[in-house]
């Protein structure tokens, strides 16, 4: 009787719970901080997930400002290292999430908070009053995903020009861009604005960068 050989083909569906990550760092073990938060704000933290030794606390949108104020003022997480949005694009859950990466410089800890955001009501309270560092990151998140930050004094687009009408990092935005959505410089000094940089890909004829001489 031949032995059945185990064959693990990709993709791996779920992380195995017994597996220990070799890159796990002590700095991301913030179980006690999350416990403190849970005690202080009962009901505000809906879920805690752990992967590779990194704790992620899902915070309710309404209590985000309270939690962050407590984190900054009493728990020492004074440094906001990163803030960004994620397009989850699933049917079963809210469409977007915004994550916050905060650092405690005294005790060398790194904490990740996440806020789930509905597609119909894509508004998150702005952290700019607590961390000035959130300013540009929130603008970028608004630019890329269209999540609005309530209380941000200057919610302009970060990278795309203000005339652009889409949010390019949403999953439904095509990788090649949308024809005509962004006028580009003319190819000749007197030429027209180029409306589609990938004209050939969209079955048009690309604008030429030179004037062909009249027929011979």
């Amino acid at each position: 009787m031949p032995e059945t050989l185990p064959f693990h083909f990709t993709p791996v569906d779920e992380a195995r719970a017994d597996e220990k990550n070799v890159h796990e760092k002590a700095s991301t073990n913030v179980a006690d901080t999350i416990e403190t938060l849970k005690k202080q704000f009962p009901g505000s933290i809906t879920e805690v997930s752990v992967y590779a030794g990194e704790y992620t606390a899902f915070v309710k949108r309404d209590s985000l400002l309270q939690v962050c104020t407590a984190l900054k003022e009493t728990l020492g997480f004074v440094y906001l290292a990163d803030l960004a949005g994620v397009d989850r694009f699933r049917e079963d859950a809210p469409r977007y999430e915004v994550y916050y990466c905060m650092v405690n410089l005294e005790t060398n800890k790194r904490l990740r908070l996440k806020v789930l955001v509905d597609e119909e009501d894509a508004v998150v309270p702005s952290l700019i009053g607590l961390f000035k560092a959130a300013d540009w990151n929130e603008r970028e998140c608004y630019d890329m995903l269209g999540i609005r930050f309530e209380g941000h004094p200057d919610l302009r687009r970060m990278y795309m020009p203000e005339d652009f009408e889409y949010h390019p990092q949403r999953k439904e935005f095509p990788l090649l861009g949308i024809p005509g959505s962004l006028p580009l410089p003319p190819r000749t000094p007197e030429g027209e604005l180029t409306m589609d940089p990938f004209a050939a890909a969209h079955s048009g004829s690309p604008a030429k960068s030179y004037q062909e001489p009249e027929g011979e």
Binding site: T10, P11, V12, D13, E14, A15, R16, H23, S49, Y51, A52, E54, T56, A81, D82, A84, V86, Y99, C101, R110, R112
Partner: peptide, 24 residues
């Protein structure tokens, strides 16, 4: 192929400062 639902953030000290990648 990392497992489904895995999230990780890893930062290094690049010459300019904290260079981190957050992956899902």
């Amino acid at each position: 192929t990392p497992p489904k639902g895995a999230v990780a953030y890893h930062a290094i000290e690049s010459p300019k400062g904290e260079l981190g990648f957050y992956l899902e």
